[in-house]
Every structure is written in structure tokens, then in C-alpha cells.
């Protein structure tokens, strides 16, 4: 029997993956910069880039193997919590890709990451509020 593939990881984070910006421009995932996300959100219409600050990082008690990330999002400083695998990369403003486990991110995706820490401000998107 064929070997069972490892649990699927989003291949868009694989080093070399081609990403299409909202401007139509194509870039490799490892070459993306903060401005690429900002500009893409601007031309997308309906989407807004928000600054999401990491305020707490814990290992999940309910779901072993995952980490629980607490963010404050946007000007409202709304609290948002998400569970992710430790290798999941986030894009930090002015710094680039970062994860709770840069070693695992490098193993699984080949993507070079910084260590995600409390106080880091990540790129996230929300729906644009109508004026």
C-alpha cells in the first residue's frame, strides 16, 4: 500500500510557492514584503489590513500539539484567539515570516522564519467597514 502522506500542510507556505498579489504581480512566498500585503488590500476593495498584536502564546490544553495565540486586532484592540500548529507562519510587520517554531517551519515548508513572540504585530485582514 502507498504510504499515507503526512497531515496536509498548506502548500502556499512552501518555499518557492507562487503568490498572486491583488495587483496581478506574482511573487515567491519567501520574497513577500509588508508593502505587498498593504497594497493588495488597498486594491482588493472590501478588505482591510489590520495590525494584530500577539499578546499571549500558550500550548493548547484541549488540542495537544497546537498553540493558542491571543491577538489584539486593529484600532479597536479587539481580542481574537486562534489555535494553530506551531509551524504556522505569520507575517510580522517590518520583519517578515515568523512562527512559534521556526525549526518546524523550516522542516515542513523550507521557509525561513523568525521566532514569533509576544509583542509582534502581525498582518491580518478583515472586512472593510462601510463609511
Amino acid at each position: 500500500p502507498a504510504p499515507t502522506p503526512a497531515p496536509s500542510n498548506p502548500s502556499h507556505f512552501m518555499k518557492g510557492a507562487i503568490i498572486q498579489l491583488a495587483t496581478g504581480e506574482l511573487k515567491r512566498v519567501e520574497d513577500l514584503q509588508t508593502q505587498d500585503f498593504v497594497r493588495s488590500a488597498e486594491v482588493s476593495g472590501g478588505l482591510k489590513i489590520d495590525s494584530s498584536m500577539v499578546v499571549d502564546i500558550r500550548t493548547s490544553q484541549q488540542r495537544p500539539g497546537l498553540v493558542v495565540l491571543h491577538f489584539t486586532v486593529g484600532e479597536q484592540q479587539s481580542k481574537v484567539t486562534i489555535d494553530v500548529p506551531p509551524e504556522h507562519p505569520f507575517f510580522v510587520f517590518g520583519q517578515g515570516w515568523s512562527s512559534c517554531s521556526p525549526e518546524r517551519t523550516a522542516q515542513l515548508y523550507g521557509l525561513a522564519c523568525h521566532h514569533l513572540q509576544v509583542g509582534d504585530v502581525c498582518v491580518s485582514i478583515t472586512l472593510q467597514q462601510p463609511p
Partner: peptide, 25 residues
């Protein structure tokens, strides 16, 4: 002529989390 191999292209927004703040206050 060699057909170019099709390479998957992913949209930029698939890379960033969609964090929708909930107004709980």
C-alpha cells in the same frame, strides 16, 4: 515547443489570517 508546466498560484489573502474582531464589549 515545450508546454510550460502548470504551477499552482495561490492568492495573497490565503497567507494571512482573517481575524474578524468580535464586538464583545
Amino acid at each position: 515547443n515545450v508546454e510550460p508546466r502548470s504551477v499552482p498560484v495561490f492568492p495573497w489573502h490565503s497567507l494571512v489570517p482573517f481575524l474578524a474582531p468580535t464586538q464583545s464589549d
